[in-house]
Nucleic acid binder design. Structure first.
Lengths: 70, 70
DNA sequence: ACTCTATGTTATATATTTTTTACATGATGT
DNA sequence: ACATCATGTAAAAAATATATAACATAGAGT
């Protein structure tokens, strides 16, 4: 359960995108709502490919969506 | 063996960083040289956390190191 | 020719992410 | 009160990433 040191603003981005739901986001990128929830909660860090797909939905770069607390 | 659609310039960055070796890079971020080799070759996409560590070694942002062929 | 060093590659094991299924709760609407 | 919807959460299975160990090759240096 190694909670990651990566934070993200997916929640905010969903809100700004017309209150897009976790399920909607998941459906758009072929991922379940549970996985979206876990990533938002920082339970584990997604695959780079998953991260790219998420960022693309919001038209953002990776670094705009995810930040690393080195 | 689902080869990923993510490309990277780790190889170039290693070269520019004084021909840093795969083993050196791996040691710096706690990863084996085999894993570095596989990532360079695009055999699979790294974890977002692994990607952050790699980018940090070269002082680059994620998007400068990894690009997505959407 | 020999010895290093860096890299490629493969097979197997371990760790981590993601899916699937299921149940729970709070908010909203009828 | 009831139904619906978004979210939280958890356990087990499936998929994927990473480690470890081993063997191979090509290049540089002696």
């Amino acid at each position: 359960m190694a909670s990651t040191r990566i934070v993200n603003n997916i929640r905010t981005l969903r809100f700004l995108a017309g209150e897009m739901t976790q399920a909607d986001l998941g459906a758009r990128i072929g991922m379940t709502r549970q996985t979206i929830a876990a990533i938002e909660a920082g339970k584990y860090s997604p695959t780079l490919e998953a991260a790219f797909r998420i960022a693309q939905v919001f038209g953002k770069t990776l670094d705009e969506v995810f930040q690393w607390e080195g």
